[in-house]
């Protein structure tokens, strides 16, 4: 992929994350923070489909942004053909892995599998 395309995605995910994380924080303000983290409330959040979709979106946005950011840091730290290939594919794998693991939690909880 062209670097400018990747960086457009990087800035886009950052902007979208600001908006969605703001909504996420506002939703959490509906109750005390410790209450938010009680077992029943956490389950209820995941079962409320629009909110679960939003959490999934935040997960994707920040995984893409965070792992691409890590790729940038690592590319600037050290150079070399093999190293750069490993960094790029490694970050892509991390990104996909994190999204898969997070999605699994969201989907399983949403479907009442825990």
């Amino acid at each position: 992929m062209r670097e400018s395309t990747i960086m457009k995605v990087h800035y886009g995910t950052a902007l979208a994350a600001v908006a969605l994380v703001a909504v996420h924080i506002l939703m959490r303000l509906t109750m005390g923070y410790s209450e938010s983290l009680e077992y029943e409330n956490v389950l209820a959040n995941y079962k409320f489909v629009p909110y679960a979709i939003m959490l999934e979106l935040i997960l994707i946005l920040l995984s893409v942004h965070g792992f691409n950011g890590l790729r940038v840091i690592l590319l600037e730290l050290k150079q070399g053909k093999m190293y750069e290939k490993a960094v790029s594919y490694g970050c892509l794998a991390g990104m996909i892995g994190l999204i898969a693991y997070g999605s699994r939690t969201i989907i399983m909880t949403n479907m009442g599998m825990v």
Binding site: R2, E3, S4, V72, L75, E76, Q79, E84
Partner: peptide, 9 residues
């Protein structure tokens, strides 16, 4: 300059 070591760094 649109390279992984170009302007975006």
């Amino acid at each position: 300059i649109d390279d992984s070591h170009g302007i975006w760094r």
